[in-house]
């Protein structure tokens, strides 16, 4: 699944690069040089994120997440689920199967929704990177709103679906 989407991105990039090369060799090399420069400047931050994610994953294994979200219920369960979602950076493709398993085992819909929402929209480990590109204020505001709205969304989902 993941590989499929990334392959599409690769194909599109190669086509664009080819077109650019045919149109203007010099400009294309300049583009590549710029790409490399931009990549190099954020690389340390990417590495830091990777290390941090590795640590978090080692602490929060699939079983731990399942236990916490599965057993806790009510608002406290939602808060715990949202906090796990906020600090972890698990690919959605791994998160959905976990969520669906939990759901089938009787975990609350609202807890699961809040977990998925915070997982995808709130990024604690990517906060420094986000501040770099969008400024601190925007990064904080966006994450705080995303966190609060995760609860709003799950309450609405709860009202509609339960």
């Amino acid at each position: 699944m993941n590989i499929f989407y990334t392959s599409i991105i690769y194909i599109v990039t190669i086509i664009l690069l080819g077109l650019s090369f045919m149109k203007d060799k010099k400009k294309t090399f300049l583009a590549l040089k710029k790409a490399w420069k931009m990549f190099k400047t954020v690389l340390p931050q990417f590495l830091a994120i990777l290390l941090l994610v590795g640590l978090i994953l080692a602490v929060f294994q699939k079983e731990t997440i399942q236990k916490v979200i599965g057993t806790e219920s009510g608002v406290i369960g939602m808060i715990i689920s949202s906090l796990i979602g906020t600090i972890s950076l698990i690919p959605v493709l791994i998160a959905f199967p976990i969520a669906s398993e939990l759901f089938q085992n009787g975990a609350g819909l609202m807890q699961i929704t809040v977990f998925i929402s915070t997982l995808t929209t709130v990024g604690f480990v990517t906060l420094p990177l986000e501040s770099r590109y969008l400024s601190k204020k925007v990064a904080f505001l966006r994450n705080i709103f995303a966190f609060l709205f995760s609860f709003v969304v799950s309450f609405i989902m709860g009202v509609i679906l339960i």
């Binding site: 650019s20 294309t28 790409a35």
Partner: peptide, 20 residues
């Protein structure tokens, strides 16, 4: 490995966007 797989095309696209 995931990072290194997904980032190069994205940065290349950003570079192309910047130039063109």
């Amino acid at each position: 490995i995931n990072f290194l797989y997904i980032l190069p095309p994205i940065f290349i696209c950003i570079g192309l966007l910047d130039i063109w």
